[in-house]
Amino acid sequence: MTETHCNQPILLVEDNPVDLDLTIRALKSQKLDNPILTARDGEEALTFIEKWENGEPLPVVILLDLKMPKLNGLEVLKVLKKHPQFKTIPVVVLTTSSESSDVREAYQLGANSYIVKPVDFEKFLEVAKQIDLYWRVLNRPDNV
């Protein structure tokens, strides 16, 4: 993990408090030092755009739930991936839905990965590891 990345936060968009807590714990268990920012619905997630425009550090990855109050995950994804500046931020859809229509649409809108939330916490840890690996690979110097 490079130095620059250590300061960059991870944005977690999740309405369910249990999932939110478990996801944070799973990420922490992977010894990730990156600060974790959270948004509890789609609307709140989009408020980050203004913050980033005002110079706040961009997240290394956005973990996005789909089913949320107000704006859902796909709508958030749509806005993000159309943003000229922030469309390059990697978005990993992390959701309970394994409906193929959701998967298809998420990828069509520009999601970088689609992960179904496992019920088993051990598997959840695995997922966290994957996410870590994922953005590490994604941010290798030759990919910047």
Binding site: N16, V18, D19, L22, R25, T96, K117, P118, V119, D120, F121, F124
Partner: peptide
């Protein structure tokens, strides 16, 4: 979602 909480 609740299952994940219980298991987790």
């Amino acid at each position: 979602a609740p299952l994940r909480g219980i298991v987790g």
